[in-house]
Amino acid sequence: MWAFGLYNYWIVIVLMMAGFYMVIAHGNLVKKIIGLNVFQTSVFILYISMGKVGGGTAPIISEGFTRYSNPLPHVLILTAIVVGVATAALGLALAVRIKEAYGTIEEDEIVKADTLS
C-alpha cells in the first residue's frame, strides 16, 4: 500500500514540471499556452486524487451505497476546466493578434522587433 500511496502525487509533479519546462524553456507562444494547459491539468489530477476515497463511489447519492468520494474537489475542478478553456482561448487570441502585428510568435524575434523600432 505505502509503496504506491504517493504515486499519484509524484506523477502529478512530473506532469507539472513538464508543463513548467514548456513555459520557461520554449520561445513559441502557442507552445507556452499548451504548457500552461499541461500544468493546469496536472493540478486537476492532484485535486481529484485527493478527493478519492478507497472503496468509495461517485458522489451521487443512491440506495445501497454508503461510502462516497469527496464531492468538493470535483466541484472546484469542474468549474476550473471550463474557465481554463476560456482563458486559454483568450491567450490563443492574443497569440493570433501578435502574429498579425509582428509576423511571428517566437518570443526572441518579438523582442528583437521591439528593440529595433
Binding site: A58, I60, L78, T79, I81, V82
Partner: peptide, 11 residues
Amino acid sequence: FGPGGGFQAGV
C-alpha cells in the same frame, strides 16, 4: 440526478 449540469451541457 446523474452526472451532468450546465457546464457540461453548454460545452
